[in-house]
Simulated scan of single mutants.
Amino acid sequence: MNIRPATVEDAQAIADIYEPIVRDTTISFELEVPTVAEMRARIEKTLQDLPWLVSEDASGRVNGYVYASKHRERAAYQWSVDTTAYIREDARGQGVGKSLYRELSRILVDLGYCQAFAGIALPNPASVALHESVGYRPLGVYRKVGFKHGHWHDVGWWQCELQSVAQPTAPARFRTV
């Protein structure tokens, strides 16, 4: 397995992983499948400040991705991020998600982030198990917060303390060459 920063050239592979999740499940609350162009724009925007990583299998094919986004806009939240991971269906249960999250956490600590949050549409025992296996702890549940596929759905929130810093300095930006 090879983990590296995503590039805009990964947009098709990322869109291919994400499409059935949006279309067929309530794991994502997006209602419309993003186009490859939209995915490319998301990757470019994220990489200006925060990491977006992909995992490649032995054949060099993208089998999962993880990224961080701002937790909230107010300045006091600048040391906190939200995290998201998706794994290609045939690569689940092989440690791809754990490896991606461990690398993402290492980078986030290096950049100066202190807290990471993950929202998980419930029920999703596989995602809960993944997040808890890499140090996320449950915080609470937003009840009936998303409506998709004709039903209301809850979202559970998990938190991972990346590091404890008494007097933090502004986090560095993640820039790839």
Score class of each variant (00 low, 15 high):
89 E>D: 15
168 P>G: 03
136 Y>H: 08
88 R>M: 10
51 P>M: 09
128 V>T: 08
81 V>T: 05
87 I>H: 00
55 S>Q: 12
134 V>N: 04
53 L>N: 02
97 G>D: 09
31 L>D: 13
62 V>T: 10
109 V>W: 01
4 R>E: 07
166 A>H: 07
83 T>P: 03
39 M>I: 15
57 D>Y: 04
66 V>A: 15
72 R>D: 08
172 A>W: 04
130 L>G: 10
163 Q>H: 01
75 A>M: 06
166 A>L: 13
81 V>W: 01
52 W>A: 02
131 H>T: 01
59 S>L: 04
131 H>A: 03
9 E>P: 00
109 V>L: 03
10 D>S: 03
50 L>P: 02
123 P>C: 05
8 V>Q: 13
5 P>D: 11
95 G>E: 09
115 Q>H: 11
81 V>M: 01
103 E>R: 15
16 D>C: 09
99 S>Y: 00
141 V>W: 11
80 S>L: 05
153 H>F: 12
7 T>C: 11
123 P>R: 02
104 L>T: 02
121 A>F: 12
46 T>V: 12
57 D>A: 01
73 E>Q: 13
141 V>L: 11
141 V>H: 11
55 S>T: 04
28 S>M: 00
15 A>R: 14
119 G>F: 03
109 V>E: 10
61 R>K: 15
63 N>C: 15
13 A>V: 06
64 G>Q: 05
106 R>H: 14
19 E>G: 03
78 Q>E: 14
88 R>Y: 11
131 H>V: 01
28 S>T: 14
19 E>A: 15
29 F>Q: 07
33 V>C: 03
171 P>T: 01
53 L>F: 10
2 N>E: 13
55 S>W: 04
78 Q>F: 02
45 K>H: 13
62 V>H: 07
161 E>R: 13
27 I>K: 08
140 G>W: 06
56 E>A: 04
25 T>P: 05
150 G>N: 09
48 Q>N: 13
129 A>V: 07
16 D>R: 11
24 D>M: 07
63 N>S: 08
123 P>H: 07
88 R>S: 14
